[in-house]
Each structure stands twice: as structure tokens, then as C-alpha cells.
Design a protein around this nucleic acid. Structure first.
Length: 343
DNA sequence: TGCTATGATTCAAG
DNA sequence: CTTGAATCATAGCA
């Protein structure tokens, strides 16, 4: 008993030293023999609290009940809450209200830009279009890859939202649980609403750090998907034979000036079911490769020249000479062997 | 598996 | 912007 009284004394002494807001009578020790009823009350309560752990469970329950019903209990709890509040605040006062994490903001922005966390419709295709636009034109035959990309993005999006929801739900459940627990405990130990609020904040911060991990891995997944998509675009796929023939036909029948106008490119693109950019690529490659090694292309050149000649002949024999697409100068002759390059 | 053909990309020049 | 030139990376073939 003496020991506990001493402990109690030192407890209150330490806790209240220099505390300006404390009632004077609480700073004067306990268990005095004077007749002050309130002081006696406080002493009783504190003593009961200190001895409660030494008691049997039943006894403790009964004590607890008695304490809860004690008329001085609310006042004592208020004071203890106040002390706690002051000490806790002094320990970690300023670190509340931290600014928004820049990394989190970056992740959020990226998820929004990729259409993962934004509004439901259109986000995926917008991102696909952005990814495509990042490296030149998009062929019509890329649509399969597009939809694949979109499907995968949707998948990522769904997983992200499911997980996010799960975390939020877990967070809410846990918060409610902790709040209930604290409220329950606030009947037996001094817990102020402010403290509960602070605890809730701590929980939220923990959960948002978990969410950040989710966001981070989602971003990584999108990046990987995106790079794969761009790699897939880089994969070469030969044009079909018909398209190649159409392009070659144009090239060799315009050998003196193989620079199709924008309209011609568009028409060729339409005929070959490829993009204008691909037509430009093809002509660019063709010109440079032809010029580099005319000999190698001689046979091909003759073949196409002959073919256009036959076409022209057929067309004229059928009466409609009008608009054969060919030959400013070389189509008529069946041999391009000595065609000088002027371009 | 190595080689060539070929579509795409990059970069500098105009 | 277009073009030429170099280069990359894969398709397709022997």
C-alpha cells in the first residue's frame, strides 16, 4: 500500500508539475488526513485505479463499475485528458497537417493521364492514342493491337479499382473498429475525442501509404504495357503482295520523279490499305535502296515497266485511252535499263 | 541458323 | 514540314 501511495504521488507529481491549468488541490499530493472531501474523493479514485491490477477479475470488474459510477470520475477524466493532450501535443506537435506527398501527386497525375483513375469512358483509348501518337502515324491494321492494349488497360484499371475499394473498405472497417475500441476504453482510461481523431488520422495515413504502393505498382504495370505496345508497333509486318505491287507499279512508272504528291500518297494508301505515313516510308526506303543498287532492281524495274506497258496497251485497245495512272516517260518503253537518275 | 529483304525509326539538312 | 541516309529489328527463306 505504501508503495502504491508513493507511486501515485510521484505520478501525479510528475504529470502535473508546472501545469498551469491544473486545479491547485490536485497538485498537493494525495491521501491527506485533512477533511477536504474532494481531495479525499480523488485520492480514493486514484488508489482504486492503482490497485485494480492486483485484484481478481471479479473484484476488478466490481471496482471498475464503482469507479465508473463515482461522482468525481468525469472531472478526473477531463483533467487527465487535458494533461495527456498537452504532453502528446508537446511531443509531436508540429508534424500534423503535412503537405501532400509529391510522389503521391505524381502517381495520381500519371494514373489520371493514363486513364486508369480518371472518368470511366474513353480514358483507355485516349491513352492508347497518346501512346500511338508518341511515335508517328498509326496504321489501320494496328487496330488489333489497339484493342488489345485497351483491353489490358481496362484490366489493370479494374484491378486497381477493386483493390482500391478493398483498401478503403478495410480502412473504414479498421477505423470504425479502433474508434469503437477507443470509445469503449474511454470509459476506463482518459481518451479525448481529439486523441481518437488523431488515431484515425494515423490509421488513414497508414492505409494511404498502402494505397501508394498499389498506385505505384499500377503505374509500373501501365508503363510495361505501354512499352510493350510501342514495341509491338515497332514489329515489322510485311505489306501484302497486292499492296507491294501497287506501290512498285507507281514507283517504276514514275521513275523519273518518284515523289508522289500528298493526294497520290493518299490514294495509294487507300488502295494498299496502309497509312500515308507508311506510303511515305515505303517511297523513302525504295528511293534510297533503288539509287544505292540500281543493278539489283533492274529486273524488277523491267517487269513493272512491261506490265504497265501491257496495261496501257490493253486500255488503249479497249478504246478508253483516258486516264491510265502511269508513265510520264518510261512506261511506254518496256526497258528501263538506261534510265538516268535525276533525282 | 545465318543471310537478305523490308518496314520503321532517328537524325540532320534544307 | 519533307527528304535522304543510316540504322534498327524482324520476317522469311535456304
Amino acid at each position: 500500500m505504501d508503495e502504491q501511495t508513493r507511486l501515485m504521488h510521484s505520478h501525479t507529481g510528475v504529470g502535473m508539475a508546472g501545469h498551469p491549468g491544473l486545479p491547485q488541490h490536485m497538485q498537493e499530493g494525495t491521501g491527506g488526513t485533512d477533511g477536504d472531501g474532494r481531495k479525499q474523493d480523488i485520492g480514493d479514485i486514484l488508489q482504486q485505479i492503482m490497485t485494480i491490477t492486483d485484484q481478481s477479475l471479479d473484484e476488478a470488474q466490481a471496482r471498475k463499475h464503482a469507479l465508473n459510477c463515482h461522482r468525481m470520475k468525469p472531472a478526473l477524466f477531463n483533467v487527465l485528458c487535458e494533461i495527456k493532450e498537452k504532453t502528446v501535443l508537446s511531443i509531436r506537435g508540429a508534424q500534423e497537417e503535412e503537405p501532400p506527398d509529391p510522389q503521391l501527386m505524381r502517381l495520381d497525375n500519371m494514373l489520371l493521364a493514363e486513364g486508369v483513375s480518371g472518368p470511366e469512358k474513353g480514358g483507355g483509348s485516349a491513352a492508347a492514342a497518346a501512346a500511338a501518337a508518341a511515335s508517328g502515324g498509326v496504321g489501320a491494321d494496328n487496330s488489333a493491337e489497339h484493342s488489345d492494349y485497351r483491353a489490358k488497360l481496362t484490366q489493370i484499371r479494374q484491378i486497381y479499382h477493386t483493390e482500391l475499394e478493398k483498401y478503403e473498405q478495410a480502412c473504414n472497417e479498421f477505423t470504425t473498429h479502433v474508434m469503437n475500441l477507443l470509445r469503449e476504453q474511454s470509459r476506463t482510461r482518459p481518451i479525448s475525442p481529439k486523441e481518437i481523431e488523431r488515431m484515425v488520422n494515423i490509421i488513414h495515413r497508414k492505409f494511404s501509404s498502402i494505397q501508394m504502393q498499389l498506385k505505384q505498382s499500377t503505374c509500373e504495370a501501365v508503363m510495361i504495357l505501354r512499352s510493350r505496345f510501342l514495341d509491338a508497333r515497332r514489329k515489322r509486318r510485311n505489306f501484302n503482295k497486292q499492296a507491294t505491287e501497287i506501290l512498285n507499279e507507281y514507283f517504276y512508272s514514275h521513275l523519273s520523279n518518284p515523289y508522289p504528291s500528298e493526294e497520290a500518297k493518299e490514294e495509294l494508301a487507300k488502295k494498299c490499305a496502309i497509312t500515308v505515313a507508311q506510303v511515305s516510308n515505303w517511297f523513302g526506303n525504295k528511293r534510297i535502296r533503288y539509287k544505292k543498287n540500281i543493278g539489283k532492281f533492274q529486273e524488277e524495274a523491267n517487269m513493272y515497266a512491261a506490265r504497265t506497258a501491257v496495261n496501257a496497251a490493253n486500255a488503249s485497245s479497249h478504246g478508253s485511252q483516258a486516264n491510265s495512272p502511269s508513265t510520264p516517260n518510261s512506261a511506254g518503253s518496256s526497258c528501263t535499263r538506261d534510265m538516268p537518275i535525276t533525282w
